[in-house]
């Protein structure tokens, strides 16, 4: 067993600096690395590039970093639901690169698995494929999309063991597994950290080889963005 545990979020984010590129898991507010985001706010690192499907809401998730103007550039597929984001984008304080969601996933996975780039049909013939290499395979056109390069990946899992093996829950999985091992350092926070052997190896979603640092997070808010219910 190779131990990946660090004592707390402060230790987990050692080495984080101004101007770095981060990957952050989550879809909407589901499965976001809440502890890492709070620590990034506290560290007040600036001029960041953040690769994340969404940009949080005004007062939660990546919205907290936007409020403090810590982010220079966002790479996302969908960024609604955030007034501060909109203001910074329209006033050009914030650089935004919008890319198709499947392309975002594929570029993370390419980085994780050692592919320099992948071909996807998404965005062909649209402004997304402008200035990008395109190629025909069997009569269909594809766009060449490069693997992401990032300094840190901040990932949220449900359960993990001290060897860094991870299990995700529900749709909080989303981009999290794809970002593991896709950056120079992968930092994982889990709701429950257990001893090696406690997780069934058959049920592991991500093996610890993709993880450098793991810790048990605290005070999860797990906010719901759009609460929709039916009556009993």
């Amino acid at each position: 067993m190779i131990r990946k545990t660090v004592a707390n979020v402060e230790d987990a984010l050692q080495g984080v600096e101004n101007g770095m590129t981060f990957m952050l898991g989550g879809f909407g507010l589901s499965g976001i690395p809440e502890n890492a985001i709070s620590e990034l706010v506290r560290l007040n690192v600036k001029n960041l590039t953040c690769i994340s499907n969404n940009a949080g809401v005004d007062d939660f998730g990546l919205g907290l970093l936007l409020q403090k103007k810590q982010i220079d550039k966002m790479v996302s597929s969908y960024v609604g639901e955030n007034d501060e984001f909109e203001r910074q984008m329209l006033s050009e304080e914030l650089d935004v690169e919008l890319i198709p969601q499947g392309t975002l996933a594929a570029r993370c996975q390419a980085a994780q698995q050692g592919f320099p780039a992948i071909y996807t049909p998404a965005g062909y013939g649209t402004e997304v494929s402008q200035f990008k290499e395109t190629r025909e395979f069997d009569g269909k056109m594809y766009v060449l999309e490069k693997a992401f390069k990032a300094d840190f990946a901040f990932v949220k899992a449900w359960k993990g063991d001290k060897a860094g093996n991870l299990i995700f829950k529900g749709t909080a999985r989303n981009f999290n597994p794809l970002m593991c091992g896709a950056a120079k350092v992968t930092v994982v926070e889990v709701e429950e950290l257990v001893e090696p052997g406690e997780l069934d190896p058959n049920q592991i979603h991500i093996p610890g080889i993709f993880v450098q640092r793991i810790f048990e997070g605290k005070n999860y808010e797990k906010r719901i963005e759009k609460r929709t219910v039916r009556k009993k």
């Binding site: 969601q101 499947g102 995700f168 829950k169 529900g170 909080a172 794809l178 979603h205 219910v229």
Partner: peptide, 29 residues
């Protein structure tokens, strides 16, 4: 149902949903 919402179970519109018997979860890739 009211009171059974789960922050870890949403749809692409970010609404809380349920999973039917036979459902599966997977990553974005």
């Amino acid at each position: 149902f009211e009171g059974e919402e789960d922050a870890d179970l949403i749809n692409a519109g970010k609404q809380t949903i349920t999973a039917l018997p036979g459902a599966s979860f997977f990553d974005s890739a």
